[in-house]
Simulated scan of single mutants.
Amino acid sequence: MPVYFIGQVQSNNCTRIKIGRTGNITRRRGQLQTGSPHPLEIMGWIRSDDEVALEKQLHIDFAHRRQIGEWFRIEPGEILPILRAEGDSGFVAKNADAFEITGYDRDAVPEYLGVWAWCDLEFHECCPFCGCFCGMHYQDASSMYHCTNCDALTDFSELSPYDDE
C-alpha cells in the first residue's frame, strides 16, 4: 500500500498537500475531490514495506506545517527530494503530456515537456512512462533507453511506448 501525496491546486499553486496511504490512489483522489472546491492532483507516492511507519514519520517531519488532519502547507518542490531519496520505490505522477515536443533549440535538438508538472526532471532521473525514480538507462546493445521498473524500452522517437495499446 503506497504512501501518497495529493495536492490541492489553487490558481496553479499547490497550497495544501495531503499525506496518506491507500491501496488505490486514483480512487482516493476522487473521494477527496468530492469534498474539495479546488482541483486535487496526485503529486507522487512511495511504495514501502512499512507504510504505517513511513506515513507517521512524514507526518512528524511536517508537523509544524500541519493545517488540519493529514493536510499540510507544503510545496511540491519539498516533496521531490523525499521521492528521489526513495529511489526505485519513489514515483511522481507524470505529466500527461510528458515528452511532448515543445520546441527546438538553436541546434535543432527537440525540447520536451517535463515528466512532472511541478518541476523539471530529466529522463535519467525519472522514467517518463511510469514515474519511477529509477530513471531510464541507456543500453548499448539495443541503442535504446530502458526502465527497470516498467520495462519500457524506447529511443524517445515516439511519445509513449504504450500508444498502440
Rank of each mutant, 00 (worst) to 15 (best):
E122M: 05
A96F: 02
Q10T: 15
D140M: 12
M144T: 08
Q33T: 08
N13W: 00
G23V: 11
G20N: 03
G103H: 09
E111Y: 04
I6K: 05
P39E: 12
L153A: 06
C14R: 01
F62W: 13
I6F: 04
A98C: 04
F123T: 13
K56F: 09
A96G: 03
Y112T: 03
R106N: 08
E55P: 01
H124K: 12
F91L: 02
G23S: 13
R27S: 12
R84C: 05
Y112D: 00
S36K: 13
R106I: 13
R21C: 08
N13V: 06
P81I: 04
L40A: 05
H38R: 12
H64K: 10
E78N: 09
T102N: 04
I79K: 00
V9S: 09
E165R: 11
C130E: 03
Q67D: 12
A85S: 15
A53N: 11
M1P: 15
F123H: 10
P81H: 08
S89G: 03
E125W: 06
K18E: 09
E78Q: 15
M136T: 00
A141I: 10
P161Y: 01
S89A: 07
D61Q: 14
G131I: 03
E75G: 08
D163P: 05
D49Q: 13
E111K: 13
I68A: 09
V3C: 09
G30I: 02
N13Q: 07
A152Q: 05
V3K: 04
I60W: 07
T148G: 12
R29S: 07
N149Q: 14
T22G: 07
Q10D: 12
G7D: 02
Q57D: 15
E158T: 08
L40N: 05
